[in-house]
Amino acid sequence: MTAALDVKGLTTRFETRAGHVTAVNDVSFAVQPGRIMGLVGESGSGKSVTGFSILGLIDAPGEVTAGAVLVDGVDLRQLSTEDLRKMRGRKVAMVFQDPMMTLNPVLRVGDQMTMAVRVHQPMSKSDALQHARKALEVVGIPSPAERLKAYPHQLSGGMRQRVAIAMALLHSPSVIIADEATTALDVSIQGQILAEVRELADETGAAIVWITHDLAVVSSLADDICVMYAGRIVERGTAEQVIGGPRHPYTQGLLDSIPARHEPGRKLPQIPGSTPQLSRLPEGCPFQPRCPRATDLCRTEPPLDVRDGQAVLCHHPLEGV
């Protein structure tokens, strides 16, 4: 089976005053239809830039400099600007973090949705509205016909994010990229939406890339997990592998920092230091200054260690399961 999304060696660089900054460094992963891949990392790890790079939505001074993005076998990077635009929303859709900001405040939900429908499927306005109404029904919005007439500020945060997800679903895309899609929402709403996303992946067969900083969210939602650090994927495997038996010290550190996994009253373990600035990365392994297992060897580029499909970029990987 061909992967719905196959990212190979994706590299995105930004031209800054301090020189080149490689925000996405040789990132590769594949997502099969109907599966959810969690892309996890701290702020500044390059996970959002990865999402935008897949859609070809990187603005100057940034540029995707290498790699391939295959969607249903078609390399988006080889397409003309116009052909790429036609793929966006139709084959690859994206949902953003802040539902307050992603909908245009001065247009009715219905107007925004019909615009998004008709750009890829020419049809009458009323047909497009029907289509939009069905999409809202799918994501569990009550009385969708009324919601179409509403302005974004008249909807709650959760409702707005559901609208955004419905808009991503309009053309039954093969790939949906969700960038921190539930981060801004209440925990209860977040749970509902995650359950719906899981259902959607199973029903529609869309491949979903769920970008988040929250390992707890991903562990309950994703089939596969990629852990990103300083622009690279440092660990990749199935959810059971990565959560159950992390092999990269960074993944281990992230898991240890989840409060719910610990007895109350105990001191919470944490990863010392903070994410390095991309313009001043340490030599060799970027995690080396914060890593409890670091040795002199870590000043050299870490090798890729693969075991049972669980890949890890480390000189001294943990045992795992």
Partner: peptide, 29 residues
């Protein structure tokens, strides 16, 4: 630079429609 424009671009709307359909009304205020 706003998110709603990014979102519109992610939906595959052509620039012309983003400018006249989405932005125009916001900047006319």
């Amino acid at each position: 630079g706003t998110d709603y424009v990014r979102f519109a671009r992610a939906q595959g709307l052509p620039d012309r429609q983003i400018v006249f359909g989405h932005i125009m009304r916001n900047i006319s205020i």
